[in-house]
Amino acid sequence: MFRIRFHGRGGQGMKTASRILGTAFFIEGYEVQDAPRYGAERRGAPIFAYVRADKVAVNERGIISHPDLVVVSDDTLVGMPAAGVMQGIDQNTVLLINSHETADTWQQRLNTQAKIIILPAQEEIEDRAELPYIGSQCAAAAAALSHVISKQTFTQALTEELQHLGDEVVKQNLAVASTAFDAMAPHSGIVKESALPSATDYIKPEWIELPFEKAEISAPAIHSGATSVKVRTGLWRTMRPVINYEKCSGCWWICSTYCPDGAINVTDDKLPDIDYDHCKGCLVCVAQCPPHAIESIPEHIAKEKELAGAKS
């Protein structure tokens, strides 16, 4: 059975990718499962979807814990524990990353035994929440790596899945998907199907007796204020608002009041200060700042600058 997981951000089309790939396997005569993982996902937040395909009925269900292939549409997610990209990855897993960087760089960075392949990033666009066609590219690359889906089949699957968006959209997606499919040719067949878990040699589940606890502990209640600040929603951000303090008029209320998340506070110097741990990158502040003192820059570039700054 093929077990394939797609990781991306809300809005990047990972559900679509899983559906295109699922349909492609299906056309090739496979039994298929594809599903997005629903939860409290929002635009920009890490999400995933998955596909299983086999020549016999697929009886496994739910999240794939040991994937044969992991496809990552946005390389900023790879190192983010909350995104769960690395979960269940071992030496048999292929990790396909959409990135400007090389496989060697990632291999060193991640210190993993997984085989890493790079899906060469297309021309850079500003806001990664709007990576166009990335879902189709990921699906095409995954199809090529599996070696069991022909390009013709893939084209048919993509067309079926995107038809409702109109011919022009299908055409544009096919063009970039085709490039991605061809780019994976040297690695075709690298993703191997894996077997069902063995029942003769397995690790026992570490079952315990759930201890009975008093209601004051075991009721679903939170006895502290504003614990939500522990959730770093800054990870959702694909575009970063940056205040140019030379232009800031110190009005101090507009960005701070309008920020839906309350992630801009005013310092003792009466200047606004953006809390990047929590700013989701909606850019309302950029749009509303009267003297246009806030600009937006791509988050990955901001990160690179930070890293460079830290090194120097």
Binding site: A40, R42, S228, T233, W236, T257, A263, N265, K280, V284
Partner: peptide, 16 residues
């Protein structure tokens, strides 16, 4: 208008 905010950040509401 207040310049610091009571409601904790980090909620799962959509950006914007």
């Amino acid at each position: 208008m207040p310049s610091s905010h009571l409601l904790g950040t980090g909620t799962p509401m959509c950006a914007g």
